[in-house]
Amino acid sequence: MSIQHFRVALIPFFAAFCLPVFAHPETLVKVKDAEDQLGARVGYIELDLNSGKILESFRPEERFPMMSTFKVLLCGAVLSRVDAGQEQLGRRIHYSQNDLVEYSPVTEKHLTDGMTVRELCSAAITMSDNTAANLLLTTIGGPKELTAFLHNMGDHVTRLDRWEPELNEAIPNDERDTTMPAAMATTLRKLLTGELLTLASRQQLIDWMEADKVAGPLLRSALPAGWFIADKSGAGERGSRGIIAALGPDGKPSRIVVIYTTGSQATMDERNRQIAEIGASLIKHW
């Protein structure tokens, strides 16, 4: 067993022997301040990774656009098919120029040779490549099948209805392509620590998230040296922004954090800054 596999296998073990965790309302004060600064709703939840206990939450059962955070769930569904012998990570998928959609920095470079399922998941999570996500959605049967996968996990809230990039439209009061912070946090925890996926697939999923290259201005910008984070960000229309993450000190994750916002007129930089400040408060009061 590799060191990384050992780390993920012992996530519940280490967490069980940690000192009790206590909620700190100071972080919620910052979440509410972010709402004021952005002029928009902000949803927040913080779960203990081992027990699933909610440590703090704000608007945990209000719907927010998922945006690209759905790509972690998508690759979880792909990995479940791999575990069941219905898919192979090494299978190569070929596609054409007509398949390319807006923001496809990886797939646009491989029109000639195609990409493997493993490479597509890596591109979808680490670079948020939209064509990679659409190609992977095709392998599982489309958005409705991802929703069905989530329902089978016990998540009857999260739903995907459309493809990239239309799913980022974020129309107010439109339930399409949305989740709730509580539902997303619980589902992410199941994917990373539950028995739904094999140990190898859980490790692969967290490795992809740990290698995320496009979430630097968010929670990662607030992390002290030595902290662990595996995350996936999302951005959408109407001032929408979000991030889902597993993080913790001492090089291992111990909490799940989900943050979503929508309806702001603020710039992307300002949305990023507010999420980073929430992260800084979380870490300060850990």
Results as ranks from 00 to 15, higher is better:
residue 212 D to M: 03
residue 111 L to R: 11
residue 230 A to V: 13
residue 76 G to M: 06
residue 274 Q to A: 13
residue 269 D to Y: 13
residue 266 A to N: 11
residue 193 T to V: 11
residue 68 S to F: 02
residue 273 R to Q: 14
residue 36 D to P: 05
residue 250 D to L: 06
residue 240 S to Y: 03
residue 260 Y to G: 01
residue 56 E to R: 07
residue 284 K to R: 14
residue 280 A to L: 11
residue 212 D to A: 05
residue 43 G to Q: 00
residue 107 T to E: 01
residue 36 D to W: 11
residue 257 V to F: 05
residue 240 S to K: 02
residue 256 I to W: 01
residue 273 R to Y: 07
residue 137 L to Q: 05
residue 115 M to T: 04
residue 45 I to V: 15
residue 51 S to M: 11
residue 219 L to F: 09
residue 94 H to W: 07
residue 245 A to W: 02
residue 64 F to K: 00
residue 119 E to L: 03
residue 144 K to W: 11
residue 120 L to C: 06
residue 79 L to M: 13
residue 237 E to L: 12
residue 31 V to P: 02
residue 132 A to N: 01
residue 73 L to T: 08
residue 141 G to T: 09
residue 191 L to M: 12
residue 229 I to G: 00
residue 74 L to M: 13
residue 246 A to I: 08
residue 214 V to T: 09
residue 241 R to D: 00
residue 165 P to D: 10
residue 177 D to A: 02
residue 63 R to T: 12
residue 48 D to S: 06
residue 177 D to K: 01
residue 108 E to W: 15
residue 133 A to P: 03
residue 223 L to S: 13
residue 134 N to R: 02
residue 182 A to L: 13
residue 97 Q to H: 09
residue 87 E to F: 13
residue 187 T to M: 08
residue 104 S to K: 03
residue 188 L to D: 01
residue 232 K to T: 01
residue 206 I to A: 10
residue 108 E to N: 15
residue 276 A to H: 12
residue 258 V to I: 12
residue 204 Q to E: 07
residue 142 G to K: 04
residue 231 D to P: 04
residue 88 Q to V: 14
residue 119 E to T: 05
residue 28 L to D: 04
residue 236 G to A: 13
residue 150 L to W: 12
residue 35 E to M: 05
residue 73 L to A: 13
residue 59 R to D: 03
residue 253 P to Y: 09
residue 40 A to Q: 10
residue 101 V to G: 07
residue 233 S to V: 01
residue 38 L to Q: 11
residue 223 L to G: 04
residue 157 V to S: 10
residue 257 V to P: 00
residue 254 S to F: 15
residue 115 M to D: 02
residue 129 D to G: 01
residue 253 P to E: 07
residue 262 T to G: 09
residue 199 L to M: 13
residue 24 H to S: 09
residue 87 E to Y: 15
residue 227 W to Y: 12
residue 236 G to S: 10
residue 117 V to I: 10
residue 122 S to W: 11
residue 105 P to Q: 12
residue 168 N to F: 02
residue 198 T to H: 08
residue 259 I to L: 11
residue 100 L to F: 09
residue 196 L to W: 11
residue 216 G to Q: 13
residue 69 T to I: 05
residue 28 L to Y: 15
residue 228 F to M: 05
residue 167 L to N: 07
residue 236 G to M: 02
residue 153 M to N: 08
residue 35 E to H: 03
residue 231 D to S: 05
residue 138 T to N: 15
residue 173 N to D: 13
residue 103 Y to S: 10
residue 138 T to Y: 15
residue 207 D to K: 10
residue 273 R to H: 06
residue 51 S to N: 11
residue 180 M to D: 09
residue 131 T to Q: 04
residue 82 V to G: 06
residue 122 S to M: 12
residue 122 S to L: 13
residue 268 M to C: 14
residue 112 T to Y: 14
residue 66 M to E: 02
residue 112 T to E: 15
residue 29 V to Q: 12
residue 246 A to M: 10
residue 115 M to V: 09
residue 72 V to N: 02
residue 73 L to E: 03
